[in-house]
Amino acid sequence: MSSTYLARRIFTLATTLIVVAMATFLAFEVIPGDPVLTMLGPDADPALIAAMREELGTELPPAARLARWTRGVLTGDLGTSIRYARPVSALILDRVAVSLSIALLAMGAVVVIAVPLGIVLAVRRSHWSEPVISATIQVGMAIPSFWLGIILISVFSLSLGLFPTGGYVPFEAGIAASIRSVTLPSIAIAIPLIAVVVRYTRNSMIDQFSHDYVRTAFSKGFPVRHVLYRHVLRNASLPVITVLGMIFANVVVGTIIIEQVFALPGLGLLLVTAVSARDFPLIQGLVLYITFFVTLFNLLVDIAYHVVDPRVELT
């Protein structure tokens, strides 16, 4: 990997952030809704409304507002939330731990469960299991995670009492309790994605079996296990790595929804509040933040891909 590659990727990352920021800005120019009216109510004193507008700068022309916001971002200031009257970065920092732990736990579950399961299902193929597996995978992919969340709450929280029904326990209050508080939401997000990754892993393994190098490996006198783990697995992992990268965006979107179900004070809940309050600085800040994580993760995936496949030149 060259330094020019890194420079180019950072440039791409920056461009993505700019485009996303512009798109969000434009979207909120077009849709109706006024943050001041939302906050003060339609019957508020016109003088108060005017004063507030003056203070927040919502009366400035769009270009000027965008310029002001961009200047702020470039100097590391994401602005102040209209709804919460607090710096956007402070609001995000308060809640990022919640969303990040759900997302990472869900991603971890996908990798740890789906990849080995896909391998096993590829190796132990039989005629009768084929339709069962594909039907299960189809159903798994189709289950919406919010519904799954509700089912998980009713079974594991209400009936069995193993997990809390909702709410977040910060790390400082105990790691075990903290993980317990995000376990069910992570599982709810992970299950449909596990189905996707199982299918990819399995298909990729099966596809690799028919390649010539596998026949060569057998001709060299290696037992099935050696051929499988030393030869097939590495080749089969390439499409799986790609799909893991794409899935991360689904996980992030999944956290936004699942935080509602479990009443978790994460970025998702904050984003929903910000949108309904037309809290433009907060929305922009959140979108920027989420985009940054997704893009960064994709960069890591590309690097991982290169590590596995020497044919891919990162230039």
Binding site: H211, D212, Y213, R215, T216, A217, S219, H231, R234, N235, V308, D309, P310, R311
Partner: peptide
């Protein structure tokens, strides 16, 4: 084998 281009493990 007949196919030198694909008979070795690419990785």
């Amino acid at each position: 084998f007949q196919e030198p281009m694909t008979s070795l493990n690419p990785l």
